[in-house]
Nucleic acid binder design. Structure first.
Length: 424
RNA sequence: GUGGCUAUAGUUCAAUGGUAGAGCACUAGAUUGUGGUUCUGGGAGUUGUGGGUUCGAGUCCCACUGGCCACCCCA
C-alpha cells in the first residue's frame, strides 16, 4: 500500500484526468445553463481578510475557517463561501454595472469540517445571484435556472424536488404572537431545526416564546391558502414557464442563516437520502450589512455544490447515462499509426499540418507494434486512425467505429479530416 | 468537537492464530503490417505506522495516522 504521505490532506481531492473530466462536465453544464439565462461569470479571490467573514455572524463559522496569519501579519482566511466576496465587489463598483446584475461563479470554497458523504474541506460551488432587483420575478428566474441545471444533468421531477418557502409567512406568524425581532430570530432557528431536534427539545424552545409546537407543525402541514404575496407571484411565474411540477411548498424550509429575508428554497433528492443539493434565497440586507449601511442592494441567489450533485447523478440511471456519454474518451480526433519507422518525418509533418488546422492528433512517441498502436487509438477514443507505412504518400484511413478503411492520398486525407473538425 | 466501522498487489476483494491468494488492470508471447475474442506466461506486497499478547499475528489487544459513515453544523 502507498504510504500515507502520498495522499492529499483530509477532505481535499486529487483530480486525475478521469475525475477532472467529471468536474469539467459539471462546470460545462452549469456554465451553459447560466449563459442561457443571460448570466455573466465573475470570480473573486480565494483568500480574503478574515474580517469579511466575521462581520456577518458568529456561531461556528470562525472555527470552520481555514484561517492563518500571512507574512504581512494580516489575518486571512480561505473563502468558506462566495456571497461575502460578491457583496464586497458589487458594493465597490455598483454604479458601473447595468442593473440588474445577473452574475454566476464557479470556484472552490474551503471549510474546516469533518469530511463525510457530500461534505469535503475543499469543494466547488456554483453560485448564481441577481442583485439590484427586488421583485419576485427575480426569485422565479433563479428557481427556474436551478431547475434547468438539474434537467440539463439528466435529472427529472422523479429524481429531485425544490422545496420552496417564504420567511415572510413565518414573520406574519411570529407577529401574531407579538415576538420581538430577537425572539423572531430564535423562532426561525427553531423552525429550521424542527425536523432534526427531538420533539421535546423543540417543544421547549417554542414554549419559551409562548408558542406551542403543535401550532407550528400544523402551520407547516396545513399552510394558509395565501402563503405570501411573493410566494404566489413566484409560483405564477414558474407555472407560466412550465416548471411548477418541480417545486413544492414546504414551510419547514427556512435555511439556517440569519441573513435570508424572504423567499428561500432547497433542492433535495426525492428519496431525501442525501444532503441538500442546492440552497438559496433572498438576502436583501446583506450588502447593507457588509458596507455598514453605505449601500443597500436587494439580492437573491443560490449555490450548488459539486459533491452532492455527483452522488445524485450516480444514483439516477438517466443522469448517469448522460454523464458517462459525456465522459467517454474523445481526447483525439485522429491517431497517426506508424507502420514503417522510416516514415516518421512524413508522419510528423502530417501531424503538424493537421494540428495547425485544429485537429486533435495523437501519435506514437516510441517504436510500437502496429497492433498496439491501434489498440491505443481505440482507448483514446480516436474517431480515425491513419496508418502511415511504406506506401506513403498513400495512406490508409481507418474509421474506428465501423472498422472500415479507405486508401487515400495525403491531400485527400487532409481534406477529409480538416473539414470534419471545422464543422464540429 | 463526539461516536461507529474500516486499512491486504495499481485496483476490487479473499485468506478456522500456522507457507499471503484471485478477478480486473498492466506486461510478454501465440500473431515479424491491422485493435474489441481466446489461450499461455510474467512483474508484482516488510498485510497503513508503532508497540503488545503468543512457540507462531494479515488475523487478537493498545496507540497513532488515514479512509468511510453518522451526530454537530451546513455561510
Amino acid at each position: 500500500m502507498t504510504s500515507t504521505n502520498l495522499q492529499p490532506l483530509p477532505g481535499f481531492r486529487d483530480f486525475d484526468p478521469n475525475l477532472y473530466a467529471l468536474r469539467t462536465y459539471l462546470f460545462r453544464t452549469w456554465r451553459s445553463v447560466a449563459e442561457r439565462y443571460g448570466f455573466v461569470e465573475w470570480e473573486g479571490p480565494t483568500l480574503e481578510p478574515t474580517d469579511l467573514y466575521l462581520k456577518k455572524s458568529g456561531g461556528e463559522l470562525p472555527t470552520q475557517l481555514f484561517r492563518f496569519t500571512d507574512q504581512g501579519e494580516r489575518d486571512v482566511s480561505l473563502r468558506p463561501e462566495l456571497t461575502a466576496s460578491l457583496g464586497r465587489i458589487v458594493a465597490a463598483n455598483y454604479l458601473n454595472y447595468n442593473k440588474p446584475l445577473k452574475w454566476f461563479e464557479i470556484g472552490s470554497c474551503f471549510r474546516y469540517e469533518k469530511p463525510q458523504k457530500g461534505r469535503l474541506r475543499e469543494f466547488v460551488q456554483f453560485n448564481v445571484d441577481i442583485l439590484g432587483e427586488s421583485g419576485p420575478e427575480a426569485d422565479a428566474e433563479l428557481l427556474a435556472l436551478s431547475i434547468d441545471c438539474m434537467r440539463a444533468l439528466g435529472l427529472s421531477s422523479s429524481d429531485f424536488v425544490v422545496r420552496v418557502s417564504d420567511r415572510e409567512a413565518w414573520l406574519s406568524f411570529a407577529a401574531q404572537y407579538g415576538l420581538s425581532q430577537e425572539q423572531t430570530a430564535d423562532f426561525l432557528a427553531t423552525v429550521d431545526k424542527l425536523e432534526r431536534d427531538r420533539p421535546e427539545v423543540s417543544e421547549e424552545k417554542f414554549a419559551a416564546l409562548g408558542i406551542s409546537r403543535e401550532r407550528v407543525v400544523s402551520f407547516i402541514q396545513n399552510p394558509p391558502e395565501r402563503v405570501s404575496p411573493r410566494y404566489e407571484a413566484v409560483l405564477t411565474e414558474l407555472q407560466a414557464r412550465g416548471l411548477a411540477d418541480y417545486v413544492q411548498l414546504d414551510l419547514s424550509v427556512v435555511r439556517g442563516l440569519a441573513y435570508y429575508t424572504g423567499l428561500v428554497f432547497e433542492i433535495f433528492d426525492k428519496a431525501h437520502s442525501l444532503r441538500a443539493v442546492a440552497g438559496g434565497g433572498r438576502y436583501d440586507g446583506l450588502v447593507s450589512t457588509l458596507t455598514d449601511g453605505a449601500l443597500a442592494i436587494p439580492a437573491t441567489g443560490f449555490a450548488m455544490g459539486d459533491a452532492v450533485i455527483a452522488h445524485l447523478i450516480e444514483e439516477c440511471p438517466a443522469a448517469r447515462a448522460l454523464r458517462d456519454a459525456a465522459l467517454a474518451p474523445h481526447s483525439c480526433d485522429v491517431y497517426l499509426a506508424l507502420a514503417a519507422a522510416e516514415m516518421r518525418p512524413q508522419m510528423l509533418l502530417l501531424a503538424s499540418t493537421l494540428r495547425d488546422a485544429g485537429v486533435r492528433v495523437d501519435l506514437p512517441l516510441t517504436p510500437t507494434k502496429l497492433a498496439k498502436q491501434l489498440r491505443h487509438a481505440e482507448r483514446l477514443g480516436a474517431a480515425y486512425t491513419a496508418i502511415i507505412g511504406s506506401e506513403f504518400p498513400s495512406i490508409e484511413l481507418k474509421h474506428m467505429e465501423t472498422r472500415k478503411s479507405e486508401k487515400l492520398t495525403l491531400e485527400e486525407l487532409i481534406c477529409t479530416l480538416i473539414p470534419r473538425k471545422a464543422s464540429s
